[in-house]
Design a protein around this nucleic acid. Structure first.
Lengths: 230, 230
DNA sequence: TCAAAAGTGTTTGTGATACACCCATGG
DNA sequence: CCATGGGTGTATCACAAACACTTTTGA
């Protein structure tokens, strides 16, 4: 923008690649799509599209996730931009990656049936097209950072969840086992969860109490200088 | 890349904006350039250029910094991509920002004389074109994170530096005052610096011992699982 | 009655923080 | 001789980590 004028031939296609995370059965999963055309036919890929002329980056990312999940207003965040997604169509392509966190139970299952898309556990991700594996790796590093510094684990959970589910999310994202007593003590000291008078009976005979994240309380505390840190 | 085909009119110009940081006289500074043409003539701006067709993002960023400083191999890192730098030339523009950390004493002063560029202390940044102020803000957040988790402060210092200089870098980037005893104790416990038998006599009558960062030792420790953390 | 998951507190250790005085020297 | 910045060690506190047994109940 400063040194030189631009040349028409320097224009690029801009693709947005969305890394859609869900959490289900104690596993962190990513939604992938199987390509139907072209030289990469049948290979798995992140979910993406080209930026349209009238769009902004964030809006394009939201549109793409919405088109495949039917969801709106999920947590999304830009991760990184890449210049090496092998040129296709003889055009130069720059890719901008985003993470999206969704409650896997909410997304529209009809879309899943109509498209060659599938949830893959993070540890079972196959070899993907272009540099999509690298994008996932980078996004996981971001996710690891965010989950310790922002209350985003709840984006991956239903409104009501058990402490074990919450703990498991931290464990799979951080890649470490945590002590359940320390974990609960920690969250209790943060004072951000409401314990409900309901139990989840699916995981044990005794049943586990359900909790919910109190976002209003969280925002009030932030306004008073509170800083989330796990 | 998945859902739709692209249209020629969706191609964009891609600009790279470099936030070049230097540290001098106890202040964190950024190199800015005054625009010489167009509707933004005379206003200050980050240093940038358009991505060339044959270039990758990281290489373009290096090229841009090199053209203005004469330096190579400085620490650089991509920060974020933006889609709202007011359209100029009636073209859609996407901007990718980078930070570059340089030792302010090393850069080529001749270039400074030949160009309308100038170092601005971080607290004296004027209102810049487009969303460049926002880019600086975002880059500072990244820098704050990095300086606590990677040994990058040394990129802003000469080979030989005093503990006070090092501490000052942490103070200006983190925006807090630090206790000098705690700071020294902390760095001593990390065991990454070599104390030299030389003193810097410019800042006091007694003189302050010079130190250097032992990168070989650092890399050896990292290989053994060491994790830098200040 | 037993297997399987839920729930619950205390102790210990490490690292962060707070803090004040003497030293060396050039002017 | 004094003003200026350089250099040094310890006591306290807060948080992280380690740790084991009892409860509930469906099968």
């Amino acid at each position: 923008m400063t040194l030189n004028n631009y040349r028409k031939e320097d224009k690029v296609l801009l693709s947005i690649e969305c890394i859609i995370y869900g959490f289900y059965q104690d596993e962190l999963k990513i939604l992938l799509i199987q390509r139907e055309f072209g030289s990469t036919k049948d290979r798995w890929s992140l979910i993406g599209d080209f930026l349209k002329n009238e769009e902004e980056l964030n809006n394009a990312a939201s549109r793409i996730v919405n088109q495949l999940t039917g969801l709106n207003n999920m947590y999304m965040e830009q991760v990184h931009s890449y210049s090496k997604p092998d040129h296709i169509l003889e055009e130069k392509i720059i890719s901008v990656s985003y993470i999206a966190l969704i409650n896997i139970e909410n997304y529209c299952k009809n879309i899943l049936k109509e498209n060659p898309i599938k949830w893959f556990a993070i540890k079972d991700i196959p070899s993907l097209v272009f540099d999509h594996n690298k994008m996932i790796k980078d996004s996981l590093a971001l996710l690891r950072n965010r989950i310790s510094n922002r209350p985003i684990a709840f984006e991956l959970l239903p409104e009501k969840f058990t402490m074990r589910q919450l703990q498991k999310i931290y464990e799979v994202i951080l890649g470490t086992e945590l002590d359940k007593r320390n974990f609960i003590n920690k969250f209790n000291s943060l004072d951000l969860l409401n314990k409900l008078n309901e139990k989840d009976m699916t995981s044990s005979k005794k049943g586990a109490f359900l909790f919910e994240f109190d976002e209003v309380k969280y925002l009030r505390k932030v306004a008073e200088g509170f800083c989330f840190k796990v």
